[in-house]
């Protein structure tokens, strides 16, 4: 049975690295894996998604509407934007973090209130203060790996050899920090 993980966020948040670590680990564990993402214009502060699918034999590299087993939102409004891709029996991991888009920056509209509550009312939702946790670890950029930790725990993939995967795919100077971040993320679920 093919499983689908949808990582969404705002260009520049590190969804691509998180998806890369995930796919490498899944291939390492013997799964067939496909991953799809869009590069180019949307990266300039736009809404982005990285889609990871794994199983015995994966056909489509993209997740269809209603097809994701888990929706991982690196920014909370993005969870709402992509919610129609989640299977109604799926779950959400959401970063309790706001990035204002241009209509909000200019004061035309307000950032929507009550997102986490609405998500929680619809599907099992784990809200994580990844920014706060990352700052506590000493580097705000590891927010993405904290969220990856929560994702792999939620999908029962926490037993894969993550320390080795991170050491093999992250700059040596940052490996320990990323391992800590991953474990911290796992502990949030």
């Amino acid at each position: 049975m093919t499983k689908s993980i949808m990582l969404v966020g705002v260009g520049g948040q590190g969804t691509i690295l998180a998806a890369k670590l995930l796919t490498v680990a899944l291939m390492d564990a013997g799964y067939d894996v496909k991953m799809s993402e869009i590069h180019g214009m949307s990266q300039r502060g736009g809404s982005v998604s990285s889609q990871v699918r794994y199983g015995k034999e994966v056909h489509s590299p993209v997740i269809e509407e209603g097809g994701a087993d888990i929706l991982v939102a690196f920014e909370k409004m993005e969870a709402m934007r992509w919610l129609n891709y989640l299977n109604p029996k799926g779950k959400v991991v959401v970063n309790n973090w706001e990035i204002k888009s241009m209509p909000i920056v200019t004061g035309k509209v307000d950032y929507p209130a009550g997102i986490i509550e609405e998500l929680g009312a619809k599907v099992p939702t784990t809200s994580i203060d990844a920014a706060k946790l990352a700052t506590e670890l000493g580097n705000s950029k590891v927010m993405n790996v904290i969220l990856l930790g929560a994702t792999v725990k939620s999908m029962g993939l926490d037993t894969l050899d993550w320390e080795r995967i991170i050491k093999e795919n992250v700059k040596p100077a940052l490996a320990e920090l990323n391992i800590k971040a991953l474990k911290l993320g796992m502990a949030q679920v």
Partner: peptide
């Protein structure tokens, strides 16, 4: 399509790409 979760779109604001 497959079954999806109903949302009314009220909690989503456009996020057009911008100059960095």
């Amino acid at each position: 399509p497959c079954d999806t979760i109903e949302t009314d779109g009220s909690k989503v604001v456009d996020r057009p790409p911008t100059l960095c």
